[in-house]
Amino acid sequence: MRALKKFAEVDRRYLYLLLLIVVIVPLVKPLGIPIDVSSSTMKFVNAVDSLQPGDRMLLVFDYSIGGGPDVDPQAQVVMAHALSKGAKVVCVAFVDTGLQYATKAIEFWEKRGKVYGEDMINLGYAAGAETAVSAFAQDIRAVFPTDVRGKRLDEYPIMQGIKNAGDFKLIAEFATGIPGPAEWIRQVQTRYKVPLACGVVAVMGPQNEPYLQSGQLVGLLGGGLKSAAEYEIAVKMPGAATAAMDAQSLGHVAIVLFVILGNIVFIIEKSEEKSKKPTRK
């Protein structure tokens, strides 16, 4: 009882230190906690798996720096999976920082032998959120007459025959806010009937679950980094997300314990207060 009360009074910086240790230790010495693949992740994997060599997939980098650690591993593994299937990846961003993530992804794969303009391309960033998404979906060249390297889109083999969003076999959008799945469903999926799969930060997962059930999304990575880890496990490409899962697991356990202990102390204090109150005779 006394120990519990001490926990309630302990300087919060000790809790911070404890949390830091709990997160860092598994990063240095992984525990190897098994990761199960959820059905929503498996649907996403199947959507990318169904791509045939030469099919064009649109990869949308709609994420900010803050949510990047949650969503970027998702985009990376999906791009790796698509390229491994022989699909061609068209990258685009409707969030300013997304452009830099797209550029990094393109450079990564260029160093590994993929050809820019044939296997993949980076169209760039367009301001205007939902309006820009709608304009892009209707006529890609009206929004992006050139790619980020300044050449006209028609000069690249990967863009041959691609006029609007309906010409892609699959759209994979990764988002941390607006534009996100709702905007892409409204402006693109409903109008062009193109399969849409989305990856979002963990906090956005629950609100997008109805779109997966209704079939408007063919896949959803709604658990942030955990979904990225599931995807990595499903396609046998373990990477940064899988490595971080042990740390995330122990972090969750620590916070759950803090909540439980905090509530036990709260109940004890409440019952003590009650017993101190004078009883009516």
């Binding site: 911070y16 803050g66 650690p69 905090g262 509530n263």
Partner: peptide, 22 residues
């Protein structure tokens, strides 16, 4: 940018002890 977002975990830890009460 990512550090700013990560710092939130410490606020959550602190809130977990004091604020998330039934």
């Amino acid at each position: 940018g990512t550090a700013m977002f990560s710092i939130m975990v410490f606020f959550i830890a602190s809130a977990a002890r004091r604020a998330f009460r039934a």
